[in-house]
């Protein structure tokens, strides 16, 4: 296998991730003067839990209750012809009306930008938010589409053959960012 391989490398532990999410919540609050209609939407799967945690941090800044939602972008992917169907599709849950609201889209890792493209298309089928911003825990570069994040927890250079794994408690038992071999990352 080409590229560098090696043991898993811990980039951020639970505390570091939580601190980043707290910082990101601060940036989101600072960016605007109208927070009342904020909706935080996580992209399945790992973006959903990050969105919920981010919403918690936002609420702790004193902005009041923050609505959350989730998007499964499987049916909006652009590689259906290449890879075929994935039988496991998660639920998409958008609470109420999104037209006119400020939406913060949350994902764990920003890479090619294709997932975000799909998420933007899917959101548009629910309504017309007044603004959509993108918040990612890790930006690893390598964009294939003109999509850039508004809020970034951490920028990472990822060597060939390696992959960024974000762990969340509900799926992986812990909160962390790790560099792992592509083969093991599945």
């Amino acid at each position: 296998m080409p590229g560098s391989t090696g043991p898993d490398e811990l980039i951020m532990d639970r505390e570091a991730v939580e601190e980043k999410l707290r910082d990101l919540a601060g940036l989101i609050v600072d960016r605007t003067d109208e927070l009342g209609d904020l909706l935080v939407v996580g992209i399945r799967r790992r973006g959903v839990e990050l969105a919920e945690r981010l919403a918690g941090h936002l609420e702790r800044t004193g902005v009041g209750p923050v609505d959350t939602g989730s998007l499964d972008i499987t049916l909006y992917r652009d590689d259906f012809e290449q890879v075929g169907p994935r039988p496991v599709i998660g639920p998409t849950e958008i609470p109420g009306e999104i037209t006119g609201r400020r939406v913060v889209l949350v994902d764990d890792v920003l890479y090619t930008g294709r997932t975000v493209r799909a998420a933007l298309d899917e959101l548009a089928d629910f309504g017309r938010p007044s603004r959509i911003e993108l918040c990612v825990l890790v930006d690893r570069g390598g964009r294939e589409l003109p999509i850039q994040p508004d809020y970034v927890g951490r920028r990472l250079e990822v060597p060939p053959g390696r992959h960024v794994a974000v762990d969340v408690p509900s799926l992986d038992g812990d909160l962390a960012v790790r560099l792992v071999d592509v083969k093991g990352a599945g």
């Binding site: 169907p85 496991v88 599709i89 639920p91 998409t92 089928d125 309504g127």
Partner: peptide, 23 residues
């Protein structure tokens, strides 16, 4: 059961205002 599980998320699409996905 895999077919039934796949149908679950498709139920929600018919409840949307724009009842259409591009797949």
């Amino acid at each position: 059961v895999a077919i039934l599980d796949t149908a679950e998320p498709f139920k929600e699409i018919s409840e949307r205002r724009i009842k259409k996905v591009p797949v």
